[in-house]
Design a binder for these strands. Structure first.
Lengths: 242, 242
DNA sequence: TTGTTTAACGGCACGTAGTGCCGTTACGCT
DNA sequence: AGCGTAACGGCACTACGTGCCGTTAAACAA
């Protein structure tokens, strides 16, 4: 897997204790932050296409070649650290109890991805605007999101392997959970990433549980799920005033 | 919108009757097919990264500059014509009856995308293998698929605007329909794109109807949907032998 | 302190994608 | 036959991304 900080593997740094070598005393993390800050600032100020890697490197006070030692590409400079979040999601699935309902597990896994954006809300909002405006960045974001969907679907497929239409249900649940997560995340970011509204977004995210296909295979689980669905349906009927 | 054949806009060709100009008597479509064939053959033979645009152009007997008059990028040479399919999907949504259930409509719209691949099964299989093996092509495919999801979600959101949790339901239904469509399409392509198996894939695709959140707002619709869901649940219970 | 090791850096050169420009060619039309 | 025009090929240019190499400075040992 890629290193947790998302940097390109420097051969000698693999598995090494954080020992600082080279001329820079502040460490790699500091240089990386400066590059990200410069990239975000320049992209927002003069446009993505009109900003060259030379511009970013010069603004951060490093050479152009060094930029590519920290990021695989120009687009990478503003990408969140999806590798870390993907690893967290995998950890949730791998350490889950075998009898935990798939939908509950999927929601727990989706929860962990929120943290990737809530750690630095301002940066997340800037990234959100850029990925919303620049087509090539939006495409890149789509590809990243699809990696989450594939991971969710793959784990769910293994869990639902014995169920009728298990593969289809895994695809539906995986896609729905990722879509709902993104919907609420983007709503939160579009609203300015107010820290007080995070919980409301998480709550709305959890509402998809009532919209997902119930799972057979557990003692009593089906009836409880049917009841849950019926109650949710009745709640909607009551809200529509019929 | 982009022209139906996916080519880059030649200014004078917009809205013109298919009149052949220039030195090539066979027409643009013929040159385009030769370029696609050369690209697919070279990508599969010597790898995507080891194939330059010069190689493709030379194999097709045209200049490098001409290649970029037919395709926006190297990756575009093997991309299906998503613009046409997206336009068809929009047409289905735009011309739909206002009272048609959203899920039924979404399935109808998804149906039309199958045709994009069934027209030329061999080419679709080759493209499938390339998009499966080459990371940059897979990312591009993810971005294309996400455009379908966004279009589905946008139309569904407008239709479910008055429902409780309508936006969330639109996101779930849109993502689920697109995911199910892709699951069955890729299953069909991975199996060799046998013409006799298309109907089975379409049938499996329609099974997601029983997995999607029921819709309130229609006279008697809720009860029918609940019944449908309960029957589907009972069917699964019976299949599991409980 | 001095010398050795080594990770990170900057610079250079190179291949390739993609674009703007322009002269040329060949087809269609009058 | 002559004209207009659309497509073509070539050229030059920018920028991304990478391999290579000499240099620098930090860490460590003597």
């Amino acid at each position: 897997m890629a290193p947790a900080d998302g940097s390109v593997d420097p051969i000698g740094a693999v598995g090494a204790v954080r020992v600082r070598r080279g001329r820079s005393a502040e460490g790699r993390a500091e240089v990386r932050r400066e590059l990200v800050a410069a990239a975000v600032r320049l992209f927002a100020g003069q446009g993505y296409d009109d900003t060259t890697v030379d511009d970013i490197a010069a603004a951060a006070g490093v050479g152009r070649r060094t930029f590519f030692r920290y990021f695989r590409s120009k687009e990478d400079a503003i990408s969140p650290d999806h590798d870390t979040a993907l690893a967290r999601v995998a950890e949730v699935f791998d350490s889950a109890h075998p009898t935990e309902p798939a939908i509950h597990l999927a929601l727990r896994a989706g929860e962990t991805v929120f943290d990737l954006y809530t750690d630095d809300p301002e940066l997340s909002v800037q990234r959100f605007r850029l990925t919303h405006d620049v087509p090539v960045l939006r495409d890149r974001e789509s590809a990243s999101v699809d990696r989450y969907r594939r991971m969710f679907t793959r784990y769910l497929r293994a869990r639902l392997a014995d169920d009728p239409d298990g593969e289809l249900r895994a695809a539906v649940i995986g896609a729905a959970v990722v879509a709902a997560h993104n919907l609420e995340l983007r709503r939160w970011l579009a609203g300015g990433a107010d820290a007080g509204e995070i919980d409301a977004c998480r709550e709305r995210f959890h509402r998809i549980a009532a919209m997902l296909p119930i799972e057979p295979g557990e003692p009593g689980g089906e009836l409880a799920a049917v009841t849950q669905r019926l109650e949710a349906a009745v709640g909607r009927l009551e809200q529509t005033g019929r």
